[in-house]
């Protein structure tokens, strides 16, 4: 018994040393259970977010203002599906089945990013999502390309390469609207007002209240804290908004020389964390709508899955008979 315990301790030490040397962990390598669990939860949530993220934008595919915008939006939504699938396959290497993950999403047991529980009432919301939501996602995702788990890091590299088109197409929509008629500019401003705070919340609770940070940093799953990433995001977006004549809806926003270790950065106002927790717990404007859309798609797609299975079985039987 003692011997087994010794062996386990050595394995954990070896594992940590490997991470400290910046080596990757691959699916068949030893890993502590807590590392596996953390990754399954994080990658699963990430995959679900990509998949649910298709819904708010899908809402505008048939109503995109021009053919060019429709093509871009279709390509973007298709990318989100692809990103979800890269991530599901990374999570599967940790021993969790695709079916199990799907069931957990549909039953509401698994979480996805709260940002997708907000509605997209106007075309400008599509611009704001690309610019702000994808912008925030990129801030989060770039450090994940160097995460210690090989399959997750590889999926993230692929995702980040594709994601930059998403943010640019969103910002371009906002530029076009901001340069348009007064109504169009107002529409862009209102979309920025709606999406600003939820986007700032996307980085998660403040460092002081974040429970998962310490281990994740030690294991090099997480390389920056929530607040560090949030600061980077605010610093990047504020000048972009100014450039197109839109106003970030935060009266307390001002340049602060002391931020970023004296390099300067924007100080921002108080974030309504009550709203954040309310939406996470299921009380956002679109939580029910999103989950029922996923359930409906799953149920209505059942005959397709069944037909594919039946077809595969039929062909297999015919092949065996010929042999």
């Amino acid at each position: 018994m003692k011997k087994i315990k010794m062996k386990e301790t050595n394995l954990i030490d070896d594992f940590q040393q490997k991470i400290d040397r910046d080596e990757k962990i691959e699916p068949k390598d030893f890993m502590p259970e807590a590392y596996r669990k953390t990754l399954i939860r994080q990658i699963g949530q990430h995959a679900h977010s990509e998949v649910v993220g298709m819904l708010p934008e899908g809402n505008w595919i048939t109503r995109a203002p021009t053919l060019k915008r429709k093509l871009s939006l279709l390509a973007k939504v298709q990318d989100e599906a692809g990103h979800g699938l890269y991530l599901y396959c990374a999570a599967e290497t940790l021993g969790k089945s695709r079916m199990e993950m799907t069931q957990e999403l549909l039953s509401g047991k698994a979480k996805y990013s709260s940002i997708f529980n907000y509605p997209t009432p106007t075309w400008a919301d599509i611009g704001a999502i690309g610019w702000l939501v994808d912008g925030a996602a990129i801030m989060n995702q770039i450090p994940l390309c160097r995460c210690s788990y090989g399959p997750y890091a590889r999926a993230m590299i692929r995702i980040c390469k594709e994601e930059s088109f998403h943010q640019r197409q969103g910002y371009e929509i906002m530029i076009t609207l901001a340069k348009g008629t007064k109504e169009q500019k107002d529409m862009a401003q209102r979309a920025l007002n709606r999406w600003w705070w939820p986007s700032v919340m996307m980085f998660g609770p403040p460092d002081a209240d974040s429970t998962n940070t310490e281990d994740s940093v030690k294991w090099k799953i997480k390389r920056y804290t929530n607040d560090e990433l949030r600061q980077k995001f605010v610093d990047a977006i504020v000048p972009q908004a100014k450039k197109i004549g839109l106003v970030v809806p935060d009266k307390n926003l001002k340049w602060d020389k002391k931020r970023n270790n004296g390099a300067g950065g924007y100080a921002y106002g108080k974030i309504d964390w009550d709203e954040f927790w309310r939406v996470i717990k299921g009380d956002g404007p679109m939580n029910n709508e999103r989950l029922s859309a996923k359930k409906r798609a799953w149920d209505e797609g059942n005959w397709v899955r069944e037909a594919a299975r039946a077809h595969a079985l039929k062909k297999q039987t015919a092949l065996q008979a010929a042999e």
Partner: peptide, 12 residues
Amino acid sequence: HCGSIHASDREM
């Protein structure tokens, strides 16, 4: 190698 996918048969 670039990843994996789920499918019921070779064509799919």
